[in-house]
Simulated scan of single mutants.
Amino acid sequence: MHAEVIATNTVLIVDDDASIRDALADFLSGHGYAVRTAASATACDRQLAEASADLIVLDVMMPGEDGLSLCRRLSNANTPILMLSALDAVTDRIVGLEVGAWDYLTKPFEPRELLARVRALLRRPSRAGDEQRPSRGGVTFAGWWLDLEERRLRDPAGRAVSLSEGEHALLAAFVQRPGRILTRDALLDLARGMDAAPYDRAIDVAVSRLRRKLAEADPMPVIETVRGVGYRFLPTVRAA
């Protein structure tokens, strides 16, 4: 028996390699997930037309429409996408994340790492209800409270924390996409009000400044650095 069985979660595996597809399906099924499979982008579209999935494991290199194109099409559905690829260059990972993948795993990989990534992504808010990605109004995360419209922030003790326009824009970009790796270019586009020049190093400085301000009130880290790629917001975010 596995301690973390989540029988209601459905994972759709999209990979043209039958051996990989079947092995992943058997492994995830053994850990309590309802698994469906597709051998191509066309088959994936058919599967999603029949029923939605809670998470999609998607291979990059496929004949016909490749994984990057399919990921771009599916990115607006707000369904977590874990991209698989034999390509290990940082630029390849960045491209995958830029077209809408939530996370990226390089082949070959340990099945336990895949399982950990799946579990982490499924813990992130991405579907209907109170945990749907917030677009406006108040949100909470790790005890904090943020008003996205009024630019007000309170720490877990209820104390007001002052944010500049740029810091608020950066934090808003994170809380609206919890659990998703955001590249520096994506953050530059999303945080329009940033108090910095538009170049990669500006994001690193801005994130560092925001981290310090949050840590002054609560030392619990909320922003993870994904080396060579960008950043990820760790806490679960809920509508207040």
Rank of each mutant, 00 (worst) to 15 (best):
E4V: 14
V5M: 14
V5S: 12
I6N: 13
A7K: 13
T8W: 15
N9W: 14
D15L: 06
D17P: 11
D17V: 10
D22H: 15
L28I: 02
S29K: 07
G30Q: 06
H31D: 08
Y33N: 00
A34R: 01
R36C: 00
R36S: 00
T37R: 07
T42Q: 13
T42S: 14
A43Q: 09
D45V: 13
Q47K: 06
L48V: 02
A49P: 10
A49T: 11
A53Q: 01
L55A: 01
L58S: 05
D59V: 07
V60K: 07
G64K: 11
E65M: 13
E65I: 09
G67K: 04
G67M: 05
C71I: 03
R73H: 09
L74A: 03
N76A: 15
N76Y: 15
A77Q: 12
T79W: 08
P80L: 02
P80H: 04
M83V: 06
L84C: 04
A86G: 09
D88P: 13
T91A: 12
T91C: 11
T91W: 13
D92S: 11
I94V: 09
G96F: 07
L97H: 06
V99D: 06
V99M: 10
G100W: 05
W102A: 02
W102N: 08
D103N: 10
Y104F: 11
L105E: 03
T106D: 06
K107I: 03
P108D: 02
P108N: 03
E110D: 15
E113T: 13
L114R: 05
L114I: 08
R119W: 08
A120F: 12
L121K: 02
L121D: 03
R124M: 15
P125V: 03
P125C: 03
P125I: 04
S126Y: 10
A128H: 13
A128Y: 14
G129P: 04
D130E: 14
Q132N: 11
R133W: 10
S135G: 12
F141D: 01
G143Y: 00
W144G: 00
D147C: 05
E150K: 14
E150I: 08
R152N: 09
L153R: 01
R154L: 02
D155A: 00
P156W: 00
A157Y: 13
G158N: 06
G158L: 06
R159E: 05
A160N: 12
A160I: 12
V161A: 00
V161C: 05
V161G: 01
S162W: 15
E165K: 15
G166N: 05
G166R: 03
H168G: 02
A172L: 04
Q176A: 05
R177K: 11
R180V: 07
R180C: 08
I181C: 09
L182V: 04
L182H: 02
L187I: 06
D189Q: 13
D189K: 14
A191C: 08
R192W: 13
R192H: 14
M194K: 08
M194V: 09
D195H: 12
D195G: 10
A196W: 13
P198A: 04
D200H: 15
D200E: 15
A206F: 09
R209M: 09
K213L: 09
A215W: 11
A215Q: 11
A215L: 09
E216D: 11
A217P: 04
M220A: 12
P221E: 00
V222T: 05
I223G: 01
R227M: 12
R227C: 12
G228P: 10
G228S: 06
P235F: 00
A239T: 10
